[in-house]
Design a protein around this nucleic acid. Structure first.
Lengths: 230, 230
DNA sequence: CAGGTGAATATGTGCAGACATAATAAACTT
DNA sequence: AAGTTTATTATGTCTGCACATATTCACCTG
C-alpha cells in the first residue's frame, strides 16, 4: 500500500475503532495529525472521516474535534425502486392490473396528509401488482392533477402509475411510513387473502415544492420482507 | 452568491433536473463545462454531482458522462437508534424489564441466521421495552458469548442488552428485515394485546467480521410506525 | 466483416495551500 | 463573580493542478 487512498484511511480508522484503540467517546487525533501519520494530504483524511461521520460512527465538531460515537446511530439505507424493477430484479415476471380509475373526493385522512382544502377532487387509482401471476402488492393511490399534469393521457394499463410518475413528475421530497396492519376488505380481496391477515404497509406522500403530488398506500402480500444491510 | 459552494451547485443542477431542462435520461454537461459555467473549480462540481449520484438522482460513468436517472431509485435512510433514545426523543419516559436470561440451544432458524454449527448454546434474552409505562416493544435476542464477551457481567436490569451491545461490542455489519406478522402468544402476552394482532417486526443479525454477534427479533406494539423523509 | 488494439475522454482521486466558520478557551472588563 | 470580548483551534470547503482509471470509439488487421 504505497499510495494511500481515502478508502484506506477510512478502513484504518475504522479498524482502530473496532479494536477499541479509540473507544467510544474518545477523541481521535486531528486531521492534520492523522495526515502526517498516514503520510497523505489532509483533504484525504477529511474525506475518510467525513464518510465515517455520515455513517454515524464518529461525531465531528469544529474546534471540539472528532470523537468516536457513544451511541452509533446506525443508518440503514432502503432502496425504493419502482415495483416492476423490484419484481424483475428477483427474476420474476411482472404484471399489473388497473382496478379503479375515478375522480373522487378523498377521505379526510388522505386530504390531511396531502394538506389540501376541503372539497377538492382527486384522481383515485387502485392497482394490483403481480409477480409471476400471483398478487404481490395492492396500491391505493390518490393523485393531484395540478401537479401530476398529463396523467389523464397516460395509458395506465401499459405503464403503472407508479412508473409513469417517476418518469414524468419529478418530485422534490416525500414522507414515508412503514407499519403493520390488518388487511382491509378491499386489500384482502385484491391480494386474495383472508381479511384481518397481518400485512406490511408502506404509506408515502410526495411533494413538488409545497404542492402535493400523490398519496399512496401500498399493501404487500403476506410474506413480504423489506431487507437491507448496514 | 459571489462565491459558489458545492451545495449551491448541487441545488442549481437539481433545479435544472426538476425543471426538466435536463430531462430523465439526458446527458448533462461534463464537470469541466459546468465548472466553467458556474465559475468554480472542477472539484466543487465533482462533489455536488457525487452527492446527487449517491442520492440516486443521476448516474455517472467514466468516459460515458453523467446522465439524469430514468428511474430514480429513491434511497430512504432510516435511523436505527437505541430504543431508549427513540422513546426519550419523543418526550416519553423509558423503562425496560428483563423477562428472561437463560443459556439455551437456539431454534434452527436462529442458528441458520447466525451461521452457527448445530449444538451451540447461546444466551437467550427476552426484554420488554416500555414508553410511559406502556408496552412499547418486545425484544427476543440470542447472543453469541464468543463475540459478546463480558455480557455475563453486565447488569441488564439497569442497561438494556441493546444499549450494552452498541457501547461494548463494535460490530462491522448486519442484516435487517422489516415485515408484518401476527403476534405470537409470547409477544401478545408481553405487549398485552390479543394474539394474532398484526404487529410490525424488525429482525436484525449483526456480525463482527465473519462471526455472528447477536440475532434479534423486535416486535413493536400495534400503532408503531417507522417513518422517514426522502 | 469480426475481432483485437490503442487513442481519446469523462469521471475518480490525490495534493498542497488558502481562507471560512464554528466553537471553545482565555483574557479582560465591570 | 459574572458577563463580554478576543484569540485560538479543528473542522469545513474552495482552488488549481496532476495523474489514475474505466470506458468508449475509431482504427487497424486478418
Amino acid at each position: 500500500m504505497r499510495q494511500k487512498s481515502y478508502q484506506d484511511i477510512r478502513a484504518l480508522v475504522l479498524a482502530r475503532i473496532h479494536a477499541q484503540i479509540w473507544p467510544p467517546g474518545a477523541r481521535i487525533p486531528g486531521e492534520a495529525d492523522l495526515a502526517a501519520e498516514f503520510g497523505c494530504a489532509r483533504a484525504t483524511v477529511n474525506r475518510a472521516l467525513r464518510e465515517l461521520a455520515e455513517a454515524g460512527l464518529i461525531e465531528r465538531r469544529r474546534k471540539a474535534g472528532t470523537r468516536v460515537a457513544v451511541n452509533p446511530v446506525r443508518k440503514a439505507t432502503l432502496e425504493l425502486p419502482v415495483v416492476r424493477l423490484e419484481v424483475e430484479g428477483r427474476g420474476e415476471t411482472y404484471d399489473h392490473k388497473l382496478l379503479l380509475r375515478e375522480t373522487e373526493t378523498p377521505p379526510d385522512h388522505v386530504r390531511a396528509r396531502m394538506n389540501l382544502p376541503a372539497g377538492v377532487r382527486l384522481l383515485h387509482l387502485k392497482t394490483l401488482h403481480m409477480a409471476d401471476a400471483c398478487p404481490y402488492m395492492f396500491e391505493d393511490r390518490w393523485l393531484n392533477r395540478r401537479t401530476a399534469t398529463g396523467i389523464d393521457a397516460a395509458d395506465l394499463n401499459r405503464i403503472s402509475a407508479n412508473e409513469w410518475l417517476v418518469q414524468n413528475v419529478p418530485f422534490s421530497g416525500g414522507d414515508i411510513a412503514f407499519f403493520a396492519a390488518a388487511a382491509s376488505g378491499d386489500e384482502a380481496g385484491a391480494l386474495n387473502i383472508a381479511p384481518e391477515t397481518a400485512i406490511f404497509v408502506v404509506e408515502r406522500t410526495t411533494w413538488r415544492g409545497l404542492d402535493p403530488v400523490t398519496a399512496t398506500r401500498l399493501a404487500y402480500a403476506p410474506g413480504y420482507r423489506m431487507t437491507t444491510r448496514i
